[in-house]
Design a protein around this nucleic acid. Sequence first.
DNA 1: GCATGATCATGC
DNA 2: GCATGATCATGC
Length: 476
Amino acid sequence: MKHPKPGVDYDSTSTEDIVYYALNLKNSTLRKELDISENTKFERRGKGGFGEAVEYYFFGYTPNSRNEPDFAEADLELKVTPLKVNSSGKLIPKERLVITMINYMEVIHEKFESSTLLHKVKKILLMHYLHDSEANPFDYEFKIIHLWEVPKEDYPTIKADWQIIVDKVRQGLAHELSGSDTDYLEACTKSSDSSKRRKQPCSPIPAKPRAFALKASYVSTIVNKALDAQPITRDSSQSGFSLEQLVKAKIAPFVGATDREISERLGVEYGAGNKNLWIKLTYCMLGIRNNRASEFMKANVTVRAIRQETDGSITESMSLTPFEFNELVCEEWENSSLCSYLEETRFLFVVFAFDGSDYRLKGCTFWNMPAKLLDSSVKAGWEAIRAATIAGIKFTSSTDRNGKVLYENSLPKKADNPVIHIRPHAKLSAYRFADGREVGNVQRDASELPDGQWMTKQSFWLNNNFVSSQIEALGL
DNA sequence: GCATGATCATGC
DNA sequence: GCATGATCATGC
């Protein structure tokens, strides 16, 4: 079993580093990440159980209940909070998010801006796991891990909620506090023993111990935002529109405008060398932050920004999803991941065309891989890559004038198929060769080959000239 | 100017 | 870390 340490496994003074480290648990469990053996029993540590266990085992801290954030040097609070699946299969919070106990005696002397509550709520590393009453907590799976800060627009409401709660205590009414007094922040009861009472400062009547908490309904909006499943907004004239009509209606007002003009109209920064300018403009025009709007999730739509040159050509090929060679060689075409992906995925192409000085929005179109091509060219390309993988991939290297080493492989190339090819798709290149030589971060960036060698993770790509011919055929 | 390999940017 | 979407850079 691993025992991570702050300052060794991550920099506990840097929010960025803490979050990056925490993301190791995404779609994973404490048992997997810490190599906890099957027969290790979960022992509760402190009162909160699982949250404390994460702090102790994963972050290497002994939990404290001081009134300062968990990662004091980074001024960052950690909250480990459960999710459940509702009747329609959606992930929702299982409960409210308790922030900190209300100290009745102290809170009446505080101002919101310097309050204990604000200090603890303003910046939180939120780790949402899927609760399972049957499972050993070491096997709880983390679904969402993100840095959360009080959104500007919610600050006034949370401040007003705090004020209502504190005013009630000041009026000697701590025993009458109720969760329904407030909107986002509530004073929830916090004791397993319902007969427990605490002193309050402005009345002799003892009050139930309570804590500041974000209501479950509020946490639900946080979760939805993180899962990015908000619908594309429709105005009243668009309420009966199909997805295609809606998308066209959203894009239409911008057709003919240059990328710079669209940036200005949408308030998007127009920076030179901005790799994601066009896809970002597209998302903004649609009123979404990424392609995970609920409509696109439901319909399996992937949004692609395409730039055409003056002759209608497209410079870059289009990346699809990465694959593992060892899975590829076990598959048959009909139920391979590439075939299923192309059968099930609709592409939304948003086309910008160069007019000699600017890229102007030309229009958009939905596209999917024609079934005929799937059965012929794509299949043949896939079979050829699979066969070459099984036969064994050979590598040769060359050094460019800067001394950088490039590794060439014996797999089929773009010119070998009219529709698809494979290319590296990783953070950085990485290899492990037959002689044991290793280049780059193999664990992170490479895939294993059937013969035990490793090469930079690859994706299937749609050939640029194929994409341009398809777009041309659609009249764009 | 194309082909191929490599890398970047962003969000979670 | 990893998926997703996208572009860069060198050799020929």
